[in-house]
Design a protein around this nucleic acid. Structure first.
Lengths: 302, 302
DNA sequence: ACTTCTTACGTCATTCGTAAACATC
DNA sequence: GATGTTTACGAATGACGTAAGAAGT
């Protein structure tokens, strides 16, 4: 079968009908065009062009080949370009999912910066619930997810943190902890912890005894919830406690919920997450914009 | 833009979803497939395949690219093949070389059948000498060669046998064997064998000891000859013996030569040979006609 | 432990440009 | 003789296979 340079030499010469112009368009020498065409003709078995040093014309078989090849090859080129654009390009649409309200303001700044840099790419923001966020990525409903780290899945890549905030524990306002000024990780052993995806970082747990606190107290888990509102409802009902970030205090302040800071928990990190196989130009450009927006504010801690 | 080998590697892998099978189909190593795909993915910017050492699957962008490329590339291939068929198709002229007189009658029947089927294609018959027959093919002086099998060249394809005839040994009429009613392959060790291309089938020889008979007797070779007349001259002069087909008895009967049948040699096969890269429509059509002509007679044995 | 994909490296084929020859007007 | 195509030849890119390595079942 034909090599790329052979097809392109043929198609270009069939258009230009001039070896010199063809060579110029392809950025090669005329000698090369001549040899390439000759090789093609050896393959096909008959001349594709009739040529004197004054005029080049297509033979009947050459004309037929051009008619067949030209649209087909254009389609090949278009397909590849479409793939490159999908993978590397920064246009079309980028669907960004976000969990909760915490990263909201941040996200708006990132969208603004990204939109200024890449006006030809629309951004669609969609709220997703914690429990379904990863499926949404995998299903291709969103290309990028802004959520809290870490998500320990082999096919998902985490970007750099956009927001780093102290941990707090959400408890019912009638809970004994509600009057504390701070709690410890060890206190988690003293009530049920409600379960929601991404609620408890893996490194809080001993890998060999995931149900123990760092000092070895047994931890018990309560009911599982899919959305943050469900969690708050269960907390309010006294069904358990739930570790959150400081931002919850601002966006989810409720009289029936108290947020008590941890004095010894590592901070909670929020940032971009995407399928490793879908690290497209759009995704990279948006995470870059988000990163830059955060740096402009003074970093993810601020 | 993509090179041919890149497109084919991608399309094949997208079909096979297995690097090993892909490499086999493309006649390259798996390492090459891996590198080619990786290069493609660098170009597109995202993975096209998701792979572990156990499973290979298309990513969404890979699937899209396959859907775009597959039909387009098939059209390119079809266009080129159509041109090749038009160019080297069954019209114009076909030059057929033949070795010796043995296949002469057969060839005439084949030409007659072919001419009836493809009146727009002229057939030029040329006698070629054994020693030069393959060069004539390679030089493009003939497109098809009717000679005796096997010719063990990597770039040459053998068609199905047109004529299968018992082996005989050509000896001088003064040779002791001349009075025998038959000879054995083992008798070859008792005189020098004259050398000519395609005289001794490979399967007569032990691959690890090609100068031994099946039972292990040493075989010695005499002078080399380029044409059959040269061989007969040397045989007549008592310089050695030479294995031939039964037809030699008919077309090359001479008082100074005796042809003694082998009682234990595999038969000699005659048939069409062509450059694998030049299996043109004309060549295929002619070999088909020759095959059909032989079948009409009752097969190659008759 | 085995299969399968990836990486590293040396070798070789093929494309490339330069330059001169050739053909046509 | 001017313009334009073909042939010849040395240089360099890059595609290839081998072999060792990594990863997953």
């Amino acid at each position: 079968m034909l090599e790329r340079h052979e097809i392109e030499a043929f198609l270009t010469l069939a258009e230009e009908l001039h070896f010199g112009h063809t060579a110029e368009r392809l950025h090669v020498t005329t000698a090369r065009v001549s040899q390439t065409i000759k090789k093609l003709e050896r393959l096909v078995g008959v001349p594709l062009f009739e040529r004197t040093s004054r005029r080049v014309t297509l033979t009947p078989i050459g004309r037929k080949l051009h008619e067949d090849l030209q649209p087909a090859y254009a389609q090949v080129v278009a397909g590849v370009e479409s793939a490159i654009n999908a993978g590397r390009g920064i246009s079309g649409m980028l669907r960004v999912g976000f969990v909760g309200a915490a990263a909201g303001q941040l996200l708006l700044e990132a969208v603004g910066l990204f939109g200024g840099r890449h006006p030809e790419c629309r951004v669609l923001l969609r709220e997703v619930q914690t429990g379904e966020s990863v499926q949404r990525l995998r299903a291709g409903e969103i290309e990028l997810l802004i959520a809290c780290f870490p998500i320990d899945e082999p096919d998902i890549t985490m970007g750099s943190a956009l927001l780093v905030e102290p941990r707090m524990l959400a408890v019912s306002s009638r809970h004994p902890f509600a009057r504390r000024t701070s709690v410890s990780v060890e206190d988690l052993a003293r009530d049920k912890i409600l379960r929601a995806p991404c609620s408890i970082p893996e490194h809080w747990r001993d890998p060999e005894a995931p149900s123990l606190t760092p000092e070895g107290r047994p931890v018990t888990y309560g009911q599982a919830a899919e959305t943050f509102q469900e969690v708050l409802m269960l907390v309010s009902a006294g069904q358990g406690v739930f570790p959150v970030g400081e931002q919850a205090n601002r966006y989810y302040a409720r009289p029936d919920i108290a947020y008590v800071p941890f004095r010894d928990a590592p901070p909670l990190e929020w940032g971009p997450l995407w399928l490793t196989t879908s690290a497209t130009g759009r995704v990279r450009a948006f995470t870059q914009a988000a990163h830059d927006a955060v740096q402009a504010r003074g970093g993810p801690q601020a």
